[in-house]
Structure formats: C-alpha cells, structure tokens
Amino acid sequence: MIEITGLTKGFGGGPVLNGIDLSIAPGERIVVIGPSGTGKSTLLRCLNFLDRPEAGTIRVGDLTVDAAKATKAQILALRRRTAFVFQNYALFANKTARENITEALVTVQRKPRAEAEARADSILGEIGLAEKAGSYPAALSGGQQQRVGIGRAMALDAQLMLFDEPTSALDPEWVGEVLDLMRRVAEQHQTMLIVTHEMQFAREIADRVIFMEGGRIVEEGPPAQIFDDPRDARTKAFLRRVR
C-alpha cells in the first residue's frame, strides 16, 4: 500500500504541488493527466526526492517519510523502493545496455554479479534487445534507449514504478514499441504511476485516471468516467483540447 498525504512543493514563486493526497493499492495502475506545468512531473519527482517536497508524508509499505524532516537514510530507502523511468531515458552513458540493468542490482542491491547478469539477460529478452546487450546508449535509437530505461526499472523489483512522460521525447516512430512494453509491464500486476499525454493508452491500461491542474488533483476515477463523463469543467476543457 502506498499512501501520500498533503504533499506540498513550491518553486520560488507559487506552489507547484498544493497538498496532494493519494493512496495507491498494490498492483494498481494510475495514469496522471493534465495540462503542462501543473505539477504532474513534480509529483513523481517528489515521490523519490529527485525534487524535495517541503511538506507532507509518503508511505511505501512499512516506510513512512515525513518530507519536512526526511533524513538521508530515509530518502535512500524510499528511492530503493521505487523505480523511475525518465522522459529523456537517462541511461548511464558509460555503461552498456546490459550494464545499465545490472548496475543497481550489484551496487545498490548487493546481488551477486552472476545473478544480476542472468536477470539482465532475461529482461533484455523481454524488452526485445538481447542482441543489443553490449551496445552503449549512444549507439541505440530513442525507442531502444527507453526500452532499456524501462528494463532497468523493471529489474529493481520496486514496490512502485514511476513513469515520467516516457514517450514525450521519442520520435513518433518509436512511441508504439515503448507503449507496447509498458502494456506488458502492466500485465505483470506491477504498481505503476504514469504521467503521459497518450490518452488512448491511458484509457486502455489505467485502473484509475487522475486529472491534475494547478498543483492539485481536480478529479479522479476509472478511465471510462474521466474520459467519457468528466464532472469538473477544467477536466472537460482539457479533454476537449487534447482530442
């Protein structure tokens, strides 16, 4: 169970997250939609302290972190329970595709190298990049890099996978393969929190859709309700614009 209460973050000027409350059931797939600059990415980045929230609590399993007085050890523990897929892939540039997957297993999780490599090879097979195991990120296409980025996150066996607009930086030709992979991850009952502008995809895989604006959750519900019968005027206006 993941429980977020009163999560607040301000960047210089006004607040970017305005007291977010959200609980996520194990295996639940939540898609966050909303206009640009409304705090969707910041919400994800605050959950693993890539951005530091000022107030609120985050509970993942038996770990509860109070943002206002989070210690280094708590932040590390939180990061080790979550996995993050970046918009710009952010693969380790000095590591091969395979090493990108093994790196945290060996360095952070202290798994034996052989076990980490076996896991990496099985994931490389799953993401369809077995033959690219020894390639460096610079030699991979955007779509391939993002598949490795998702593979790296899958390998961590995290309690929560965070996807920050994983297809937004991709050329249109690569979007399909990345969404396909995410569908397969979703089928494995992985708990996922996804920020995306792919509305059709959101409708397909989400258990719950959250509409955010102005650093707040405006409306949430099953995809059919949000997409076909939105209640709030702001949700209606946004969906009219993106269709």
């Binding site: 890539l50 080790r80 979550t82 996995a83 993050f84 952010a90 000095n94 790196e103 360095t107 952070v108």
Partner: peptide, 27 residues
Amino acid sequence: VDRSQWEAAQAVGMTQSQMMVRIILPQ
C-alpha cells in the same frame, strides 16, 4: 556531466559515493 546522469544514479538508490565512483567520475 549531464544532469540526467546524476538523477538516474539517485533514482536507482545509489549513495553519493557510489554515484561519484560508478557514474560521474568515469564520465
């Protein structure tokens, strides 16, 4: 070294010194 490299290292749960030794200094 690109900011994304620091963030990726942090996101997988590396300590500061692991991040420096494994990711940042080699680059």
